[in-house]
Structures are given as structure tokens and as C-alpha cells.
């Protein structure tokens, strides 16, 4: 088997950039091609009238089809509990529950969610009437800055339902059996929710407490 490194000579010729010298015209056509070459399609899209069902209430909205579900919740319905941490499906802070399933609301368009039941963090509980998962997060200090927290909680609530429904995960040892309510299962299943403050150990304690009460 040959392992060679073609990047040094052969490949470098095919790349547009080189270091050092001043690059002028060439660069403009390469790196900035996107803006120089095709400023077309400058139209305003037709707005779409949709009915969004969120936390049990129906909302009639005229939306730009480009609007994500996350932005519709935040900017139109003022449900700002769902957070925009990355807007790329890479952090989980925008997690909401749609028809019982957790999804990232930044990677779906609002227009695609008509007819679905959407639950956000605001629909789970309020400061004076906390959902058990919210109460467990407080008790176990399952958060620090709090920014990922609504997504963590929505995710945790729906995640426990997934385990209960017998859905397997990456760490389920025997696929033919139902998964266990265990820390290793919860850790794997919650991995789509990043907490940069690093409250994971405490979040796991919170989830374990709620799971224990349920089983």
C-alpha cells in the first residue's frame, strides 16, 4: 500500500492561493467569486400564510418562507426561550418538541411545520409551575450560564420518552432488547445538546432523578 503526500508538490499547483506575494485580480475572481459573479435572484419571496400550533395555542402568521421555525418562535411569537446558539444544527440550544419528538428548530422552516404540535420550553412549565425536569435542573444545578438550558430540558424530556418507547441508541448493547434507563444511555442520547459551561455531570444527575421517578 502506498502512502504518499501529494499535497506538497502536485496538489499545490491546483490551489488558487499562495502565500506571500500580493494577490490582486486573481483573488477577486476566486475568493470573492460569490459576490462578484452572480448578484441575481434579488426578489422578495412571496409570503406564506401559516397556522402554527405552539404550546397548545394556534397562531396565524404571514411568514417569509426563509424563516426557520426557530426564528418564527423567537421573532414572531416572542417565545425567546429557544436559543440560537449556532443556527447550524451543531449545538442543540434551539431544541423543541414537535409531535412528541425533539428536533432542532434552526434546521426546519416555519412553513414546513404547519399542522404539527410544537412544544417549547415555555410550554413545559413556568417559574411558578415548574415541569419536574425544570425543578430537577434547579435542584442539581444542571446549568450555569443558562443559555443551553431550555434546549437541554426539552431534549431531556423527549429523550426519556424515547427510552421508554424502547428506541435504541449507539450505546444500547443488545439491539433486540429495550434499552435501560441508565446514565450511559442518557449521556449518549443527550450528546446533541452542548453545554460549554460543562454542567453535564449535574444535568445527568437531574435526568436520573426524573427518570427514577418515572420508572
Amino acid at each position: 500500500m502506498s502512502i504518499f503526500d501529494p499535497s506538497r508538490r502536485k496538489f499545490i499547483q491546483t490551489t488558487a492561493a499562495s502565500t506571500g506575494a500580493i494577490i490582486t485580480a486573481k483573488l477577486t475572481t476566486d475568493a470573492e467569486a460569490k459576490s462578484v459573479l452572480k448578484p441575481k435572484q434579488v426578489t422578495e419571496p412571496a409570503k406564506v400564510n401559516i397556522l402554527l400550533r405552539v404550546n397548545g395555542s394556534e397562531h396565524q402568521l404571514m411568514v417569509d418562507p426563509r424563516m426557520t421555525l426557530l426564528d418564527a418562535l423567537r421573532e414572531r411569537l416572542q417565545l425567546t426561550g429557544s436559543k440560537k446558539g449556532c443556527d447550524q444544527g451543531q449545538c442543540g440550544a434551539c431544541t423543541v418538541i414537535v409531535d412528541g419528538r425533539r428536533i432542532v428548530s434552526c434546521l426546519t422552516l416555519a412553513v414546513m411545520q404547519e399542522g404539527h404540535d410544537i412544544t417549547t420550553i415555555e410550554g413545559l412549565g413556568t417559574p411558578n409551575n415548574l415541569h419536574p425536569m425544570q425543578a430537577a435542573f434547579i435542584k442539581h444545578d444542571g446549568y450555569q450560564c443558562g443559555f443551553c438550558t431550555p434546549g437541554q430540558i426539552c431534549s431531556a424530556v423527549a429523550m426519556l420518552d424515547e427510552v421508554k418507547a424502547g428506541m435504541p441508541s449507539h450505546v444500547t448493547s443488545d439491539l433486540t432488547r429495550s434499552p435501560k434507563m441508565s446514565a450511559i444511555e442518557f449521556r449518549e442520547r443527550m450528546s446533541g445538546n452542548i453545554c460549554r459551561c460543562g454542567a453535564y455531570s449535574n444535568i445527568q444527575d437531574a435526568i436520573a432523578e426524573v427518570a427514577g421517578e418515572r420508572t
Binding site: G92, R102, I103, V104, L107, S169, H170, L175, G192, N193
Partner: peptide, 21 residues
């Protein structure tokens, strides 16, 4: 049961949220 490698591969990918979508 019969195509476990497929289950395994799916479950190794992305996150719970993304797999739901």
C-alpha cells in the same frame, strides 16, 4: 434484528434531534 449494522450506523450518526428530522 436482521440488518443490525444499519441500525448501528444510523445510531452512530448525528444527534437524537437530527435523526428525528
Amino acid at each position: 434484528r436482521d440488518y443490525a449494522v444499519l441500525s448501528r450506523a444510523l445510531l452512530a450518526g448525528a444527534s437524537g434531534q437530527l435523526r428525528n428530522q
